[in-house]
Measured scan of single mutants.
Amino acid sequence: VTTYKLVINGKTLKGETTTKAVDAETSEKAFKQYANDNGVDGVWTYDDATKTFTVTEMV
């Protein structure tokens, strides 16, 4: 189990959250659901070296 981080650069929501998951794909699903639940829709990137997802909304 690995800890993954999500950085949110939204128009109205900014911040970070973490989750523990067995792999990046599992954490990505959880993070995308979290973003969707909070009305964040944007461009996703992933940095495997830091286990960090970033979602950026276009303004």
Rank of each mutant, 00 (worst) to 15 (best):
Q33W: 05
K32L: 07
Q33T: 08
T3K: 07
T3G: 04
G39L: 05
D41L: 11
A49T: 12
Y34T: 03
T50H: 05
E25G: 08
T50G: 04
K20I: 14
V1S: 09
E16R: 05
T50P: 00
V7L: 08
E16N: 08
D48N: 09
T18D: 05
Y4Q: 02
E25Y: 12
E16I: 12
T45E: 11
V59K: 09
V22I: 12
N36D: 12
A49F: 10
K20C: 14
K29Q: 10
T26Q: 12
T12Y: 14
T26D: 08
T52C: 04
Q33R: 10
K51F: 09
Y34P: 01
Y46W: 03
D23G: 04
Y4A: 02
Y34Q: 02
T18K: 06
K29H: 08
D48P: 14
N36F: 14
T12A: 08
Y34I: 07
T18C: 14
K5G: 03
T17M: 15
E57P: 07
E25K: 11
V7R: 05
V59F: 12
A35D: 00
N36E: 14
V40C: 05
T45M: 08
T54N: 04
T2N: 12
K11H: 13
T19C: 15
A30I: 15
D37H: 08
Y34C: 05
T17K: 11
T26K: 06
T50N: 08
L13Q: 10
E28Y: 15
K51Y: 09
V22H: 12
A35C: 15
T18N: 06
V40N: 01
G39N: 11
G15K: 13
V59S: 13
T26G: 06
T56E: 07
V43S: 08
N9S: 06
W44N: 00
N36Q: 14
T56I: 08
G10H: 08
K32H: 09
T56Q: 06
A49P: 07
E16H: 09
A49G: 08
V55H: 01
Y46M: 01
V43M: 09
D48M: 07
E57D: 08
I8V: 08
T3S: 07
Y4T: 02
T17E: 05
F53D: 00
A24R: 15
D23V: 02
T52Y: 01
G10T: 15
F31K: 00
T19M: 15
D47I: 04
L6D: 03
I8Q: 00
K14T: 10
D41F: 14
D47F: 04
T54M: 08
D41A: 11
A49H: 10
L13K: 08
D47W: 03
A49D: 11
T26H: 09
T18A: 07
T19V: 14
K32C: 05
I8N: 00
S27F: 03
D47Q: 04
N38E: 07
I8M: 07
A21M: 04
K32T: 04
A35R: 01
D37A: 11
F53I: 02
G10K: 04
N9L: 13
G39Y: 05
T50K: 06
V22P: 13
K5T: 14
D41R: 11
S27L: 04
G10I: 13
K11C: 15
E57A: 07
A21V: 03
M58E: 13
E57I: 09
T2A: 11
V40L: 10
Y34F: 12
T45G: 05
V43L: 11
T19G: 05
D41V: 14
E28V: 06
N36R: 15
L6S: 01
W44C: 02
T52L: 03
A21C: 11
T54I: 09
D48A: 13
E25Q: 13
A30N: 08
V1C: 14
D48V: 09
G42D: 01
T2E: 11
V40T: 02
F31Y: 02
K5I: 12
T56Y: 08
F53C: 03
N36K: 15
I8H: 02
T26F: 05
D23P: 00
Y4D: 03
K51M: 06
N9K: 11
N38T: 06
V7Q: 06
K51L: 09
K32S: 03
Q33V: 09
T45Q: 08
